[in-house]
Design a protein around this nucleic acid. Sequence first.
DNA 1: TTATTTTTCGCAACCTTGTTGCAAATTATT
DNA 2: AATAATTTGCAACAAGGTTGCGAAAAATAA
Lengths: 138, 138
Amino acid sequence: MEASIDDILKKNQLSVTSSRKKILELFLVNNGALSHGDIEKKAASKFDRVTVYRTLQAFLEKGVIHNIPTADNSIRYALCKDDCSEGHHHDNHVHFICNNCSSTICLDNVIIPSIKLPKGYTSTQVEVVVSGVCKECK
Amino acid sequence: MEASIDDILKKNQLSVTSSRKKILELFLVNNGALSHGDIEKKAASKFDRVTVYRTLQAFLEKGVIHNIPTADNSIRYALCKDDCSEGHHHDNHVHFICNNCSSTICLDNVIIPSIKLPKGYTSTQVEVVVSGVCKECK
DNA sequence: TTATTTTTCGCAACCTTGTTGCAAATTATT
DNA sequence: AATAATTTGCAACAAGGTTGCGAAAAATAA
Ligand SMILES: [Mn+2]
Ligand SMILES: [Mn+2]
Ligand SMILES: [Zn+2]
Ligand SMILES: [Zn+2]
């Protein structure tokens, strides 16, 4: 596990530092998305707030994580698939937010349907966020 | 026009005040979604910042407007259909965000497709946000 | 209309979230 | 090990958003 974390960082041209290792580990352990706040709590007092921001920023840019749109103001991040890289994401899956436990999950197997737009509109990305009750809370 | 604005407010059990009239008018004139910032600029110096927050909050609760999820942190609001009411929205349409002019539009005629979720998941709402180039920018 | 009750507004003060510059510490490279 | 490049933490700041409360404005009653 230790080794693979380093590998992921190196593969994405990120220098290996303790904060990056810790935060990446959080994503690997937790299955589901994490908000900035989650990470600050879990990595509490180990790193500066600013470092968390910069780490997430770096992860986003390099294609280690992607973010999930929400109706409220809270950005959530989740691990990308292996084949995502800087500027080139392939996370075209549906996201699920549980109204009960508010966990946010990537449904990797649920493909985004194609949307027929009115004349004149061109689509480059389609985001689908489903909310409801997850299988744990059922 | 003046009369209908008052009517909309009354129909939704909102007392008629000048700030509410003004902000509702902004939504009616502008077709497309508005952010809090947009409203502050357009209603500039007429109302306090707090009043804008509270007005949007009230409009949201009463079902006058709905908000649109975005990947970045910016909440956008758009007018609801006539038959939306407190807690009961019927805005199940696709939203479009232009990457060029960043205008956000409700595509009332584009219906949200049904999503087949894995076993155990129950869906209460599906949000679809398409980004690309709008017909104006084409 | 005027009087009374209810709701909303504006202000100030505060909190949370996110950003930037820079010196010190850490990591990568030679 | 020495040097160069990157990252970190701190402090200071800016933007975004919330809360309490007295004054003002709307709604309701008389
Ligand atoms: Mn995902
Ligand atoms: Mn809409
Ligand atoms: Zn749940
Ligand atoms: Zn456009």
